[in-house]
Design a protein around this nucleic acid. Structure first.
Lengths: 195, 195, 195, 195
DNA sequence: CATGAATGAGTCTTCATTCAT
DNA sequence: GATGAATGAAGACTCATTCAT
């Protein structure tokens, strides 16, 4: 009933938009403030610096991402369904936050950012992969999947999904004709290629 | 006889290093000049602005990338060998220019960069995928591969390879034990997963 | 029974501490508020601005200083004893408020401060000197002192005392061995130097 | 013939004026730049920060002060003449840099400034006093002065001179009638007061 | 051609002051 | 009265770009 977001949340919301559009360095604090309908100074009541705002924003996003992935992994359902849901999630996120995800990836790898955040980011990545490996393991145990190397397979899965989602989001103009749906994608992934 | 490289090339070489390390906005023209052993003003003899230098650098890199990929695709050899060579290439590039590739990707997507460069970049991407699709087509015609959807399969291939190369480059510390070699990777890719 | 001091006094008390430590510009209103255990806004209930707070504080200090000096000058006692008491007072003040005294002196001289305060400050200084001149005059009339120029002598007295007090307060480390007491000081002052 | 000052000197010259007028915090870098007829950025080619500019300025001033005092102390002449010359010097300096001297004193004592500068300042002070003590010692050995405590006497001398110079500079309006010259001042200092 | 000293537009950040509660 | 969250004017500092040498 309480539709009001805390000011901190509003600022982070605006920061997501601006950092997404401009990257860390091009983004201007003033514009983030404007986007959040607050004064420039207000930002500094909630965050100690532009860098701090960025880092907290990233943590918030990572946390919400982790939650979403974990939720899916813990639901009932066969492995194939879970994988499909993860694809769906990834595509939704790519649509909403595709650019910023990449910006985070870069900024997190560059040493410029707080070392702590970098660790956090890599941990989330690792955690994500572990969850997917478990789904494959589950599938193998249920005799649905071949006894593949779960590590490499999860790399494929993640990479393929990213690429797929990226295609849909950013290369739209190139293949308005082609059908890019999850079903076909899953089929391609599952069946393998060698005769 | 000496000074083999033109001054332009030297500057671009330095720019690659600095933009790679810092991204577009954090990179400083002065440092690029220092890295190229020229004066700050000299940069502006060859490039009209920092942005221009970045764009020309990107074009140079894309051109050399395209050449390398085309060379491999035109060599004799069976499709599987070609794919392996592409993986190898991707990994070498990721090692040498992994960060800047991502930076380019972002900057190319953001509207900040010259629209022209963005188009150029997306075209290279498309071109790259087309080449890979052709290799799959070739394999299908040779009855080595199943009659898969070459578009989706190439997405998988590209995404998987990227993920794999990223893994090797940036997540080193996480799996010093695991073997991450091309052979195993190809195997995982080719065999599929469903029983 | 509690809250003996008025809120105004508490704020001024905190202001003395902060302005003393930081000078006018570095001092922060928020910190003064914190030191007085009141909200930032409360300060503005009692003072119209930071500058006003500073000026009122200065006036308060000057008034209390004038009272102390006048009290000593009006006490019974021989001129030498009075002078000793003044030295003692100066040293106590220097210990308690040495830094702020200098800050006031500067701020009072700079045109930055209210012209009115500047006049007030210089008047106090003048008044102070007049009192000391009177003590010397008294001594001369009592035939205790030679018929010296009371104006110049009072300058000497004030300057010497300040220097002496400053020494004791800020140069401590340099002469932990030397005795710096009022008796010796008075003696040096009184006896003159030429044979 | 070369009337041109180095840019560094011009900037310091302007800094002296502005810091003198406004103190450290109120002074604006832009105004210092304007006063030196250079761009704001130029300041930062020569000094790493406002604080650094202030510190280097102080060191320059202290160095030139030390040189002037040492020059006088090493000249031939009887102690009384030397003392007179020091008074003259002090008065000239107070006229030219009286305000900034006080500002330096405060800033040097406050911990805000580089600890190193503070030490430097106190050392100069100490050094100054030592020189004066030596002049008194010389006078005592020549039987011109009584065997007074040179330490306390030098405190008197310094304090008295400062007060005297301050008077002449800042209290002008109060005693346009009174004669304030070096001769009378020296007489007052030398003769003592007690009958 | 090559240079790097000089510049000032553009940013982040601080903090005195206001005002709704 | 009392408060402190919110504000935005103001200032230190950076760095792409220019231009005299």
């Amino acid at each position: 009933m309480e539709g009001r977001k805390s000011k901190r949340e509003v600022i982070i919301g605006s920061a997501v938009k601006i950092f997404e559009r401009d990257g860390f360095y091009k983004a201007k604090v003033e514009e983030i403030a404007k986007g959040a309908n607050v004064g420039k100074g207000t930002i500094y009541e909630y965050f100690s610096s532009k860098r701090d705002l960025f880092c907290q924003m990233v943590k918030d996003m990572l946390d919400s991402y982790v939650k979403m992935v974990e939720k899916i992994s813990q639901e009932n359902g066969d492995p194939v369904t879970k994988l499909k849901k993860l694809i769906q999630l990834q595509m939704t996120l790519m649509e909403k936050h595709g650019k910023i995800a990449q910006i985070i990836q870069i900024e997190a790898i560059k040493s410029g950012l707080q070392e702590e955040l970098k660790k956090y980011f890599l941990e989330v990545k690792r955690n994500h992969q572990t969850i997917i490996e478990k789904i494959f393991q589950e599938g193998i145990e249920l005799k649905i999947f071949k006894p593949v190397d779960t590590f490499l397979t999860s790399l494929f899965f993640i990479g393929g999904v990213n690429q797929f989602a990226f295609e849909k989001e950013f290369m739209k103009t190139y293949h308005s004709d082609k059908e890019l749906n999850v079903e076909k994608f899953m089929e391609a992934f599952l069946k393998g290629i060698i005769k």
